[in-house]
Amino acid sequence: MNTSTSTTWASKKPGRSPGERLVEAILFATSLVSVLTTAAVIVVLFSETFQFFLRVPLTEFLFAPEWTPLFAEPRYGIGALLAGTFLFTAIGLVIAIPLGLLTAAYLAEYAPHEQSIRVKGIMELLEGVPTVVFGYFALLFLTPILQNLIPGLNLFNPISAGLVLGFAILPYISNVASDAMMAVPRSLREAAYALGATKFEVVTKVVFPAAVSGIVAAIILATSRAVGETMIAAIAAGQRPILTLDPRETIATMTSYIVQAATGDQPAGSLASRALFSVGATLFLLTLGFNILAQRIVERYRERYE
């Protein structure tokens, strides 16, 4: 029975004291802070980006081969930053996907209870390491080793940055993917065992395919984290935005460029500063898209088994 005719939240429960209503109003106001934050992010990024596109044609943004806003003859090709982000992310995923999925399989299918708590603890530990520490490790430990193994490897390169990134995002894959695998009904596993499947076959031929949407969501989520990961890229991958797919070269990701630009001094309202926000807007749209996609997929597989 709904007695309220008004649509506002405050009048929903009539006859309450003003104090009670004030409390509710304050709490409602706090919950709006997150909405305002999102709104502010969008307004800030896109108003600056709009100003940017008043001066720089979209074709330049999309197709120019370089990103050099501070040069005498500036170029604004986001492709250079996207290529760098792609290299960094792809190398991270090459590490994180197999390791993350194996860990998920271990957590969901093999590990006894106490053991899985321990493994989750290790994953939490990995998640808790500040990324500036990972960056330090990539630049000063991994890169010198890799330079001995890979000829022509620059000091700043997406290989060692990406390798370390892989471990930073591994927990996201293993957590979400193991949840998805645990959501696969026991009856499917039993059906496969009853047909004479080995455990490996149950995992790979029944559990993996049944959990595939959750696994895909896990990978997308990890991709989103990787694209937005800043310190590892800024420290170890470099800050030189050129259009290349050679992983031995110094590159710049969108995030490392933002750091580089911000630690320099660019007056508000300058074109270089607006360019910075246009990179931020691209980064925001990309990660938001990944996150929403992952959520949609997770919601869909939840429905399937409930």
Partner: peptide, 24 residues
């Protein structure tokens, strides 16, 4: 909407918050 927004906000890269802080 508030709930979905909160979840999405948790997934926004921290550097974007930095840009927000810089501008606002």
């Amino acid at each position: 909407f508030i709930e979905v927004n909160l979840r999405n906000l948790a997934g926004v890269p921290s550097i974007v918050f930095g840009l927000l802080g810089l501008a606002v």
